[in-house]
Design a protein around this nucleic acid. Structure first.
Lengths: 224, 224
DNA sequence: ATCTTCCACCAATAGTATGTTCATGTCGAG
DNA sequence: CTCGACATGAACATACTATTGGTGGAAGAT
């Protein structure tokens, strides 16, 4: 899930960004409201996390502006203030959810997941299986025919995307945006390379093969 | 917190499972009493949620059976019956708490949290083991291959977290929050250093090694 | 008070796996 | 046969992690 984080305190920003990246979400960061607005409007994020206290324009104002042009984009507000009045103000600005700092990171993750599910319908982070391949998004493990397979973070992220959308052809563009982030735009065959890595780890030596190329369109994970 | 849910109505089961997973609890599901009993006795859960009305054996009977072998395992009963008599019957069967359907999910969550906390606080005698490593959460002792190993407080706390979540990849963020408390400071490699301390004490010179790095994601304690 | 010891923590450096690119090889369609 | 599209292997760069030495402070001993 592509996430835009607007937070001016470097330490907090870093903490949140790293935590989300450890869950394999691509994260982009804006240090002030104006830049945040620019990014939010120019790109297609799945979620925006906004600090209320920002230099430039306030989080609430930014929230309203984003909401005006992107009514469906989920917005999560962060703030140090915890009064009911603040919460109401936040929600009235169009935020979908509200989290008071300091928070336990798991709490943030839970809300991120909840907001993400609203538009994706599928939520990575649970268990998936196809044929004799099992992917556990919680433990971050992969097994084929009962045997554990070790993947790197990027490989896992790619496989998770494929298995969540099994039987559906995924374009390279879509894969790039989901796994590598919004602003991925290199003229290389990086995705092909990673598909190749995955194949050698989860398909080589097993039947049936699960990763299929659809020429001109992209890749699918399916049986047969 | 690992949760076992025994519930035969698929809709209700799904509702509860999804809600709990959103809070990042791993949930396993049994659709009848016998299978529930098998799972409960064979695995290490932190909490069992039981429907009273079940095919096979009843929830009350199941509760008694589990209680016989796992006196410390928290059990939460769910039922459509709301009379005092029913509640008493449930609690007398050894359940720790009782919730009448239909309920608001927040209510369930609150109880789940409460039972979880109780277990963490009053968890004397919790012993964990993986391969030839034994950790006694009560005596605060650690042994590998029968030989006692002396750890400092922080080291023990870290090891305890790892072994409670064995086979699951733990992110640095999660580790930082659990062992060191909420802190935004990821500017140092303190966690890496403590992992290194632990490795030198419990892995060095032994096979198999138990602490594994998952680059980009965190660390796991597991065999293999 | 002072000394000693141990623990928690930090920072710099060395080390390694991963991420990325590029050149080349293969395959099928037309 | 030729082209486009994809697969593959290897080389390179980067990012992440391991390791070690050192600092400071707290607790206990003298």
């Amino acid at each position: 899930m592509n996430i835009l984080l607007v937070e001016d305190e470097p330490k907090v920003a870093d903490f949140i960004r790293k935590g989300l990246q450890e869950q394999l979400h691509p994260v982009e960061l804006a240090y002030d409201g104006l830049f945040g607005e620019k990014l939010a409007l120019e790109n297609e994020y799945d979620l925006v996390i906004l600090d209320v206290i920002l230099p430039g324009i306030s989080g609430l104002e930014l929230c309203r502006r984003i909401r005006r042009f992107k009514p469906d984009l989920p917005i999560l507000l962060l703030t140090a203030l915890g009064s009911t009045k603040d919460k109401v103000a936040g929600l009235e600005s169009g935020a979908d959810d509200y989290l008071v700092k300091p928070f336990h990171f798991d709490e943030l993750l839970a809300r991120v997941k909840a907001l993400g599910r609203r538009r994706l319908l599928t939520s990575p982070g649970v268990q998936y299986r196809i044929a004799d391949l099992e992917v556990d998004g919680y433990k971050k493990t992969v097994r084929r025919a009962g045997k554990e397979i070790i993947l790197t973070a990027k490989e896992f992220s790619l496989l998770e995307l494929l298995i969540v959308n099994k039987n559906r052809v995924l374009s390279r563009t879509h894969i790039a945006e989901t796994v590598w982030g919004i602003n991925y735009d290199r003229g290389t065959n990086l995705i092909d390379v990673y598909i190749n890595y995955l194949r050698s780890k989860i398909d080589k030596g097993f039947t049936p093969t699960l990763i299929h190329t659809v020429i001109g369109m992209g890749y699918v994970l399916k049986e047969e």
